[in-house]
Simulated assay, not measured.
Amino acid sequence: MDADDALFRLAPDHYRARADAEQLYRSVSQRLIRLLPTGSEIMHVGATAIANCLTKGDLDIMVRVDPNEFAEAEQALASLFARSRSDPADGFAGFEDASASPHLGIQLVARGGAFDMFEKFRDRLNASPALLREYNALKRDHDGAAMEAYRSAKDRFIARTLRY
């Protein structure tokens, strides 16, 4: 990890970042449909899936599967992608492709499990201009700051947003 990886940086052009993420989403989702169990749901989540949300320019995809298909889906994703920095937990596994442009993160969640909340968070921000303004302010406040500090503030914001 170089020094820049330890900092949170907003994309200089959010419209371009959103377009790049959407293009990659279309490509990756087609690969995932062929790879994953039939009932899997594949969704574009994260900042590039939220209208007018500031972004660092990466793509986040959530894959939701039935709990009894989680192990199969996890193996399938592990065959193509590196595990992300988060540790696999019951009902959640993170994957990434740092060589993708933009950077790709995939969150595998068990349907109805504790981590099945990425879609809910995205939808809450898309439905609430006030929450979106607050989230964008949080991002602006952390632009150029330590990634760890940004993630901590973001985690608190997500927890509060999901309680509504």
Results as ranks from 00 to 15, higher is better:
residue 89 A to K: 15
residue 102 P to G: 02
residue 130 A to F: 15
residue 23 Q to R: 14
residue 157 F to H: 05
residue 15 Y to I: 13
residue 33 I to Q: 09
residue 49 A to Q: 05
residue 81 F to N: 02
residue 112 G to L: 06
residue 58 D to M: 03
residue 106 I to W: 00
residue 113 G to P: 01
residue 31 R to M: 05
residue 20 D to G: 08
residue 79 S to T: 03
residue 30 Q to M: 08
residue 162 L to Q: 04
residue 124 R to M: 11
residue 160 R to Q: 13
residue 142 H to W: 02
residue 22 E to T: 14
residue 113 G to C: 04
residue 39 G to V: 05
residue 66 D to M: 13
residue 81 F to W: 03
residue 67 P to I: 15
residue 97 D to R: 04
residue 34 R to G: 01
residue 74 E to G: 06
residue 25 Y to K: 10
residue 82 A to F: 12
residue 47 A to T: 09
residue 8 F to W: 11
residue 42 I to Y: 00
residue 106 I to D: 00
residue 131 L to W: 05
residue 42 I to G: 00
residue 116 D to Q: 06
residue 108 L to M: 01
residue 15 Y to G: 09
residue 126 N to F: 07
residue 5 D to F: 11
residue 56 K to I: 12
residue 84 S to L: 05
residue 157 F to G: 04
residue 22 E to Q: 13
residue 157 F to K: 06
residue 136 N to H: 09
residue 157 F to P: 01
residue 149 A to V: 07
residue 70 F to V: 03
residue 146 A to V: 06
residue 129 P to E: 09
residue 54 L to I: 15
residue 158 I to E: 00
residue 64 R to Y: 01
residue 164 Y to K: 14
residue 128 S to V: 13
residue 120 K to R: 10
residue 52 N to Q: 08
residue 58 D to H: 08
residue 121 F to L: 14
residue 162 L to P: 02
residue 116 D to W: 02
residue 20 D to V: 08
residue 96 E to I: 11
residue 109 V to E: 01
residue 47 A to R: 08
residue 64 R to F: 01
residue 110 A to L: 01
residue 31 R to G: 13
residue 68 N to V: 15
residue 19 A to P: 03
residue 155 D to P: 00
residue 147 M to G: 08
residue 44 H to E: 03
residue 153 A to E: 09
residue 40 S to W: 00
residue 11 A to P: 01
residue 131 L to N: 05
residue 154 K to E: 15
residue 89 A to N: 08
residue 17 A to K: 07
residue 139 K to G: 09
residue 18 R to K: 10
residue 74 E to Y: 05
residue 47 A to D: 07
residue 145 A to E: 12
residue 142 H to R: 03
residue 111 R to E: 08
residue 121 F to V: 12
residue 69 E to Y: 09
residue 56 K to E: 12
residue 39 G to Q: 11
residue 140 R to V: 10
residue 14 H to P: 12
residue 152 S to Y: 09
residue 59 L to F: 02
residue 145 A to L: 08
residue 158 I to Q: 01
residue 85 R to T: 09
residue 125 L to M: 09
residue 84 S to T: 06
residue 4 D to K: 12
residue 32 L to I: 03
residue 56 K to F: 04
residue 55 T to I: 05
residue 31 R to Q: 05
residue 23 Q to E: 09
residue 120 K to E: 10
residue 57 G to L: 11
residue 64 R to V: 07
residue 90 D to L: 14
residue 107 Q to G: 10
residue 157 F to R: 06
residue 150 Y to G: 02
residue 87 D to T: 07
residue 142 H to K: 04
